[in-house]
Amino acid sequence: MMHQSLFVYSGYRYFKLCMVLIITSVIAYAIHTPVDGPNGGTWLGYTLGGLGAAIILLLMWFGMRKRSYKSDMGQVQGWLSAHVYLGVALIIIATLHAGFQIGWNIHTLAYILMFIVIFSGIFGVYAYLRYPALMTKNRRGNTLELMLVEMSELDRECREAAAQLTDEINKCILDCSENTKIGGSVWQQLSGKDSNCATLAAFNKAGELNKLLPKEMAGDASHLMTLLGKKCELVQRARRDVQYKAMMDIWLYFHVPLSFALLAALTAHVVSIFFYW
């Protein structure tokens, strides 16, 4: 038993399935020549539309399956593997269903929403491929919690080191320990940066203030700078950790709500076709 990614799950089972779906659809589309051009109203259009709608429902059911922990209906990994491949296949199936017709109507809205959902999903796949390994590397065996503990420990050491130095330096150290923020707004989380980083400010300011100190304090001052340097590095790593996690999470805030919007638009699309056309 070895680890295997969701792409290769069960010998590329769902990749193969999707290739069959896509190739069949493309061939059918190519050989099918309805009188009024390819559109959703032909027998092939209905078939592809039905298939697409069924796939969308199945993809949305993933959210249920993922949380049905007692269910033994396949592994969640298999579901996700199918979710990813079928989602990509949907681009082709839905486009062929539409017969490349675009307009200012509810049908195209559903089509566009579907695209946004799929592309947010593709970003998710990208994030899942890229960030886990980076996160492990960045953490160096620690957890975020331990990094925060280490930070407060460094704060304490800084205060002790600064105790021998001037009041201004002490103030600057106090500011550093009280006002350094990890995380914060969505943007701050995603960027992994804080333009008003209190630690960095303290590092720069203490550097300046140290220059004014008498020689006999040089030893303490340089020890303080080492500690502040360590903290800067740690703060940066903690922010990067938050950033990676945010990158792995952020797309879901688009993917999930928009998929519900898609479901609504899709319902409107189907209802309008059967009742008003």
């Binding site: 680890h3 295997q4 969701l6 922990y69 033994d72 969640v76 990994q77």
Partner: peptide, 9 residues
Amino acid sequence: RACPTGAAI
């Protein structure tokens, strides 16, 4: 069974 990415074995 619940691991979506196959990371847990």
